[in-house]
Nucleic acid binder design. Structure first.
Lengths: 214, 214
DNA sequence: CTAAAATTGGACTTACAAGTCCAATTTAGA
DNA sequence: TCTAAATTGGACTTGTAAGTCCAATTTTAG
């Protein structure tokens, strides 16, 4: 968690102000995009002044990087909060359902906060691109962690590669979110998550009792 | 193909100018994004004037819509040009390889021209969103066409739904492109396309002779 | 308490971008 | 040929956005 600007110590008040700026900026950026969100927007919604923004961040790009890091923690935190571990196929199915259900939230508008930023910033800010790449890695690692536990317990075939399965699932999630946002329909996201889950189910080892799900 | 502005007849020269504007704008928008491309950029690169842009397009949004339609035709045309029909699993594999190889083109930079525009414009321009939704439908229809042929020939199980398989493949393609662009690696795209192809292979009916591929 | 550091207000500069406007030139078609 | 329509040049307006600057206020720590 590179913080930079630590030559300057933040007081309690300063920390609160900085946090308020980051969270508000995150919401605005999610709704309007990075380029579509002006610093004046952020100032107005946070009740801060220009000098405050530039006191806590070197420039707009630095603020956007803080937004990326905050969103990354928020998203992964929300996921582990709802489903502590993706280490059973049942948990994976609930995870998929949760992702699909998220389309309703904003009436179909808004894709994945990280995916949208990645698309907008990857070729615009090298620092942001690297950060977003790491964000996806972290998110995928959380998924791979559950798959790995399944593999250790012998529920997934030895040949299954948790890291690759997690990455494939992430591509499905991102592509599904994008199409759902574009077509204002949960259909593509549902099909994407079903595909990702089936891609994992391929490596499930049959167990005594109940049959392979789905 | 809604053209609008047909109250005004275009001469041969006018058509050429308009086309030059659209193609150049498409390249700039692909490289810099829609918001990152100014009309002055387009003017400079096409050697046109402000009045020409506004002569052929109502406003910037209308130009962007023309870009979307042109890219849609270009992408689908390029695909059918390289692989006339995705009606064998071999053709599908070549298609997947072609998609993966496309990452090299711009040194990893640049995602899918349509996907990038969708992410940027879906919540910004309703007209553009609808158009992009239709673009994905057209592209998917081209994929579904091949799958349907396989189904008719009995190579795909009757339960297989070409439309759903095509949509799932499109989400994999888009998500894979996005992650590849973000991480400057073809790995996520390769895993995505493998997943999409496997998702189709699930419905392959075994045929005499060679075993199920992959 | 008091000096140094952190925090804040807000005006100002500079750059750029979308869109308007009008006049000049070229082309098409009768 | 001639005239109306299409095409083009380019200055201009208006709005916005990032970033700078300096002074005022508040807080922290010795």
């Amino acid at each position: 968690m590179v913080r930079k600007r630590q030559e300057q110590v933040l007081t309690k008040r300063g920390t609160a102000t900085r946090q308020r700026i980051v969270e508000t900026a995150a919401r605005l950026v999610y709704e309007q995009g990075a380029r579509g969100t002006s610093l004046d927007d952020v100032m107005e919604r946070t009740g801060t002044s220009k000098s405050q923004l530039y006191h806590y961040f070197d420039n707009k790009d630095a603020l956007l990087r803080a937004v990326i890091q905050w969103q990354t923690k928020r998203i992964i935190g929300a996921q582990t909060g709802a489903i502590p571990a993706l280490d059973t196929f049942e948990a994976l199915k609930r995870w998929g359902d949760m992702i699909v259900a998220s389309v309703i939230d904003n009436g179909g508008r808004g894709g994945c906060p990280l995916g949208s930023l990645a698309s907008e910033l990857a070729d615009y800010s090298e620092k942001a691109r690297v950060l977003l790449g790491e964000s996806f890695d972290l998110w995928e690692a959380e998924i791979a962690r559950g798959l790995d536990a399944m593999k250790v317990r012998g529920e997934l075939a030895p040949a299954a590669d948790p890291g690759e399965l997690a990455t494939a699932a992430m591509t499905a999630l991102q592509g599904g979110k994008l199409l759902a946002q574009t077509q204002r329909s949960e259909r593509p996201l549902r099909l994407a998550m079903d595909m990702a889950l089936e891609n994992i189910a391929r490596h499930l080892k049959p167990k005594r009792g109940p049959r392979r799900a789905r």
